[in-house]
């Protein structure tokens, strides 16, 4: 993907498969999902509920709630959710 966020440190964590909107991706197990999504080229995560503007992770520390997306059917903060093998991620928020 063009102009993705790039990994600059070789991770010593095991890579696992997750599913993002039907696409198979690999990510280090235990990494915050928001980080894995950035590295996989998913910068936009959802739309704002009122004006439907595109949004992505902003604070990466659990404050802004911009990364609140569906994981295994529940809305979670992607920056606070560690990657697990087989996770099913949907890039949409409350709407």
């Amino acid at each position: 993907m063009v102009s993705a966020f790039t990994r600059i440190v070789a991770s010593h964590h095991a890579l696992v498969h997750i599913n993002v909107d039907g696409v198979d991706c690999v990510a280090p197990a235990g990494e915050p999902l928001a980080t894995s999504l950035l590295a996989a080229g998913y910068v936009m995560l959802r739309h704002s509920p009122n004006r439907h503007n595109p949004r992505g992770a902003f604070c990466l520390m659990g404050v802004c709630q911009e990364c609140a997306i569906h994981v295994d059917g529940q809305i979670v903060q992607a920056c606070m959710t560690p990657v697990r093998a087989g996770m099913v991620v949907q890039l949409r928020g409350a709407v």
Partner: peptide
């Protein structure tokens, strides 16, 4: 500032210090 790809400075330090992730070239 709400556009995806705009992020906080603190987020940048987390990417740098904890996760070894760099923003795209530009």
């Amino acid at each position: 500032w709400t556009l995806p790809g705009v992020m906080g400075l603190a987020a940048a330090t987390i990417m740098l210090k904890a996760h070894g992730l760099a923003p795209p070239k530009d």
